[in-house]
Design a protein around this nucleic acid. Structure first.
Lengths: 195, 195
DNA sequence: CGTCTATTTGAATGTACTCAAAAGCGGTGG
DNA sequence: CCACCGCTTTTGAGTACATTCAAATAGACG
């Protein structure tokens, strides 16, 4: 049950069995169903969730009601609203499940206890944050530097496993284009198969 | 000389005069001239720089040679390529000075020494990272959710001090539009002054 | 099956880009 | 102090990319 998450944190530093046991004892397992919402705009995010199985999305809803998807998260990733969680401020984001998923969640209080007991865990979370920064920078570059078709091709090459399991309209919302236009791009690509 | 940076870190935690002295002794002051490049694509970023005075930009250059500016950094901010610095990997980014600037830089070795001597500094850097994540998320949302004119208005309202000191073509490269188009937006806005 | 939602299609429109050229502006040297 | 050079900003015409809206089709789920 804990093998995946333990292997994951062990890649960030060496931990003893006792330390991992403590870590595991602080995690709260959670099962969510497809479309279930974990965080809404205005709420304070009280979890960092490790994904054991499934897929979640983090998104923003603008004035006109359309979704801007910031991130898809699948197995072995963490999801949270970093800012809201750490600063205890209302979130601007929504988080929900793209499919039925199993998570381990850590709330602020338990995270504190973990860090107090095993300070080396600071490193695990710092590495998580760094990876998150890296991912966001990549995403920003790719979003800004390229036209829609190139963004789509880039996406399906980079994340084939995600592209296969999320609805097409969500991919459009992630790539910053309308679902209609993505559909047209796909038609063009299917005709000239030169890619 | 160190008052600004010390006040800045003291906002993240309480430090004694001795701890701050040690911190200050590890900082390397650096003066850069306008257009001077601190980091090029392919290099490994060996600094985290606190800006005492001046303005720098972090950007990416795509295949076609055009710049995508990720961030402008001014007084009291830190600049670095987070990923490259921490993982010792070649950077994809460029960093250079928009105007003559004064910095304090910290290299990986000195940062290690600082953290070894004063572990509470972990917190300072974690907060920096968190803010960085927040800033990137905001930027992504604003870039994706709005058309060019709204992005520009948002930018000059949010960062009037930056808008005033960087060339217009750099603002365009930050907002993800061509300089020509930004110029046209400004003309439209100047005519109908209803904003 | 039938209903609901997701995807596709098409026409019309709008937004932003390209390219080329002119105008503005700052610095430098005569 | 002025003239010139290089760089930034502005302008315009033409075009390409992407959106909107409406409707048809396809898929998923009960």
């Amino acid at each position: 049950m804990f093998s995946a998450i333990n292997a994951s944190v062990n890649r960030c530093g060496r931990f003893t069995a006792d330390e991992l046991d403590l870590f595991n004892s602080l995690l709260v397992p959670k099962t969510v169903r497809k479309r279930q919402v974990l965080l809404r705009e205005g709420e304070i995010c009280d979890f960092e969730a490790y994904i054991v199985r499934g897929c979640l999305r983090t998104y923003y809803i603008d004035e006109s009601g359309s979704e801007v998807i910031l991130q898809f998260a699948v197995e072995d990733w963490w999801v949270s609203d970093v800012c809201s969680f750490h600063e205890r401020t209302p979130s601007q984001l929504y988080i929900d499940a793209v499919e039925d998923s199993e998570l381990f969640t850590l709330n602020p209080e338990r995270k504190e206890r973990l860090l107090a007991a095993v300070p080396q865990f600071e490193r695990v979370f710092r590495l998580m944050l760094q990876r998150h920064v890296g991912a966001l920078e990549q995403r920003l570059i790719r979003t800004m530097a390229k036209p829609a078709e190139a963004r789509y091709l880039d996406f399906i090459r980079r994340y084939p496993q995600i592209a296969a399991r999320v609805p097409q309209q969500d991919i459009a919302a992630y790539l910053g284009m309308t679902p209609e236009f993505l559909s047209k791009i796909r038609r063009r690509l299917a005709q000239r198969k030169d890619w």
